[in-house]
Every structure is written in C-alpha cells, then in structure tokens.
C-alpha cells in the first residue's frame, strides 16, 4: 500500500503540491486527473523520490521513502517502474538492450538479461522488433518498449506520467488495454496521471482530482462519475460522457425539441439502463423518446448517459421520483 500523508512541495512561490493525502491500495489502478499545472507530475514523482518533498510522509509497504538514504532509495526505485509521455528510451540502444537496461544497471550478465528481455518483450507484443533502434518505431511501440523496460525488474508499482498523451486514440486504447492486462496478471499497483478523464474511465478503479496542488475530490470511479461533487470534476466528466460538450448538447437538443421535457439520466452498474427506464415508463404510462444515449464500460461496471424527451402534457415529477428510487441520476435540462 502507498500512503501519501500531508505531502507538500513548492518551487519558489509556487505550491506545486499542497498538503495532499491519499491511500493507494495494492493491486489497484489509481488515476490522478486534473488540468495541466495542477501538480500531478510533481505528486507522482514524489512516489519514487525523483522529487523530494518539503513536508509529509510517503509510506510504501511500511517504509517512509522520504527518509531513505540514496543507496536504499535506489534499491527501492528498482521495484517501482515508471513510464513517461515521451517514452524516454535510449536511442543508442536496440529495443532489446533498452528493455534489458535496468538489469544492466544491476550488472546481470548479458546472456541472462537478454533472455529475460525477450520474455518481457513477448508479453508486451514486441517479439519481432528486438534488434531495431527505437527511432524506427511508432509511438505505441515505443511505449511498449518503455513498459517492458519497467516490467523487467518485476516491480510492485508502476507509475505512469501521461503515458498515452502523445498517442492517437486507437493506440491509446491499445496501451490502456496492455496496462489493464499487466495490472490483472501481475497484480501490479498502477498509479497513473492524465489530463484525459477518458483514460480514467477506461482503466482506473479509483481516482483523485487535482487542482492547484490540492486533491479536491477522490473516490471510486463509478461513484465519482455518477455523482461528482466539484465543478471541476463535473467539467472533466462531461468531456467523457458523451464525447461531446454537454452544454452544447443541451442547447442542440433544446433547439430540436423546443416543446416538452428533456431529461439527462446517468446510470451505473447498480441501475443498469434501459430496462429500468422501460419499466418506469410502462408503469406510469408515460411514453418517452431516447434522443441520445451513450454507454461506457469502466473497471467497476458500465456507466451510461441518456437523454430522453417526454411530451409536454405529461407530468415528469413522478418519473423523476421513480427513476431516482432506482438510483438513476436525473437532471432536467
């Protein structure tokens, strides 16, 4: 378990991280989101002490790593893998030697480390690229090399700093799937930071939202997506729900359906979508129209957003009440 307790870090007058406390459980994928400059990278980098803290404790499996001397810290770092937005591979080494690099650092002999590197390369789907140099690879392949390099030391923790931010959507999905697989198969705790809420929605179990160096909200992904408390969180989520600007969506729909009621419904796994809606509609004899719908899968279950239109003559108070009973979140737009 990683326990971050009252950690602060300033650069001159800038409080990059301001009294942050978080607990990250073993084996989970924990996301930290926020806009650029929120302090995500700084916080993440305190976990392997690339950044020293001004105050606070970072307890990893019972050891406060802020107190370790440099030798002990290097030992510890070997069990904490890290991947980056720009991959940060050595251009002068082949893919195989890049993957084997952490073993080279601890003086494992060439044969052994190459054997091991081949094994890991296979796991990330790079077995046919071993002898080329990184400059010939695509972004996604480079990130696979970086992931393999992180995995070769058999870490318990993987830190990811915007690992998919330089990749196109399709490649992003592939890399996220790979991270998910690694998390499942090897029980590696993954702490990832991103400015894309979509990444969190796809692979995280829990998340924290950061702004101005502070964690303003944290919890399970499904809870936060269904019922975000902070405005910033709402804004971040809205970019994912529909893949569209929600406010614009509301305006568009209102223009299209000037008459009647428009409702925005949010479902999660406890209140999985349409059946409930039809039941309620039938029960109350209120016909409705689904005008837009979007269901996403998260690590902790499905998550749906639906826009429905109901004719003006119907009373919607009842339908709202019924839906809320079934744990559907309802907003009138």
């Amino acid at each position: 378990m990683i326990k971050i307790e009252h950690v602060s870090k300033s650069y001159g007058d800038i409080k990059a991280v301001d009294d942050v406390s978080l607990k990250i459980d073993d084996g989970e994928i924990f996301g930290i989101v926020g806009y650029s400059g929120a302090g995500k990278s700084t916080l993440l980098r305190t976990i392997n002490q690339l950044e020293k803290v001004d105050e606070g404790v970072i307890d990893i499996d019972g050891v406060d790593i802020t107190k370790l001397d440099i030798k002990a810290l290097r030992e510890k770092r070997r069990k904490i893998g890290m991947i980056f937005q720009h991959f940060d591979l050595l251009w002068s080494k082949t893919v195989l030697d890049n993957i084997a690099f952490p073993l080279e650092l601890i003086k494992v002999d060439k044969e052994t480390r190459r054997e091991k590197a081949k094994e890991v390369a296979k796991r990330v789907g790079l077995e046919d690229k071993l002898d080329v140099y990184p400059s010939t690879l695509s972004g996604g392949q480079k990130q696979r090399v970086a992931i393999a390099r992180a995995l070769i030391s058999e870490p318990n923790i993987l830190l990811s700093d915007e690992a998919t931010s330089a990749l196109d959507p399709k490649t992003t999905d592939d890399i996220l799937e790979l991270l998910k697989k690694i998390n499942k198969e090897y029980q590696i705790t993954i702490v990832l930071i991103t400015h894309q809420m979509e990444v969190v929605q796809k692979i995280c179990h829990r998340l924290a939202v950061m702004a101005d160096g502070k964690v303003i909200e944290d919890g399970r992904v499904d809870d936060i997506f269904k019922d975000p408390k902070q405005d910033l969180t709402k804004k971040l989520i809205q970019t994912v729900d529909t893949g569209l600007d929600v406010e614009k969506m509301a305006i568009d729909l209102k223009a299209k359906y000037p008459e009647g009621h428009l409702l925005r419904l949010t479902f999660d796994q406890k209140s999985s979508g349409e059946p409930i809606l039809y039941e309620v509609g039938n029960k109350l004899h209120i016909p409705f129209n689904i005008v837009s719908a979007n269901i996403k899968n998260t690590q902790v279950g499905p998550l749906g957003v639906m826009y429905i239109h109901i004719e003006k003559r119907h009373d919607i108070a009842k339908i709202i009440e019924e839906l809320q009973k079934d744990e559907v979140k309802v907003e009138v737009i």
């Binding site: 690339l50 290097r74 770092r77 980056f84 940060d88 050595l90 002068s92 650092l105 970086a146 030391s153």
Partner: peptide, 28 residues
C-alpha cells in the same frame, strides 16, 4: 535528453551509471 536521465534515475541508476551507461553512449 533530460527525460532519459530521469528515467534512468527512476530505474535506480547512480550518477556513475548515468555517466557511463547513459551520457557517454547517448552523446557519442
């Protein structure tokens, strides 16, 4: 590239490792 040096530090490289195994090969 600073990123590569950072990545090496994150892998547990010492300053000596960084000079011999990163800086020299990468600046050849």
């Amino acid at each position: 590239d600073h990123g590569v040096i950072e990545a090496s530090k994150a892998m547990g490289a010492s300053t000596f490792d960084i000079i011999t195994k990163v800086l020299i090969p990468e600046s050849k």
